[in-house]
């Protein structure tokens, strides 16, 4: 009985951990194989606008998924409001295009999979094989 109980608890915990993870995903055309949090912040602050192979970075941002968003912005160490101001300033001064806002994880996966140079984020357990994972946020 005891081993079964332990197994159940382990499964439940691992499941919870898997749900809590957030994956930073990219289109398969992106040359990068991984990103550091600092590089990710540079992308979302619009400091870096091209990938190392010269292609334009197509930023995507998930909305209406508070748990996933909170983990993502916590990793960046930035208040979402701060980033919104950065995006607005960049857009209105003609410097860069702001991230495309996407309201569901399925849409995010579809957009990232179909857009060259795209990068976004979803819950780790949603990721399918048609995108690549650049960073996993625990």
């Amino acid at each position: 009985m005891k081993p079964i109980l332990i197994a159940c608890v382990t499964i439940l915990l691992s499941s919870a951990c898997a749900q809590a993870q957030v994956a930073v995903i990219a289109n398969r055309s992106v040359a990068e194989t991984s990103l550091t949090p600092a590089q990710l912040l540079d992308l979302y602050q619009l400091n870096t606008r091209t990938w190392t192979d010269g292609h334009v970075v197509e930023l995507m941002c998930l909305r209406e998924n508070p748990d996933v968003e909170r983990k993502f912005f916590d990793l960046l160490g930035r208040n979402p409001l701060e980033l919104r101001k950065v995006w607005l300033r960049a857009q209105l001064s003609g410097r860069a295009r702001p991230p495309l806002m996407i309201s569901s994880q399925d849409d995010m996966l579809r957009h990232v999979a179909s857009t060259r140079g795209a990068v976004g984020f979803v819950a780790r357990d949603k990721v399918q094989g048609n995108v690549k994972i650049l960073l996993v946020i625990e």
């Binding site: 941002c61 909305r63 912005f73 979402p80 919104r84 991230p99």
Partner: peptide, 14 residues
């Protein structure tokens, strides 16, 4: 709060 904040971000939608 994060949800509302990020929702606000959509006004930068192109």
């Amino acid at each position: 709060s994060v949800r509302i904040t990020v929702a606000l971000c959509c006004f930068v939608l192109v």
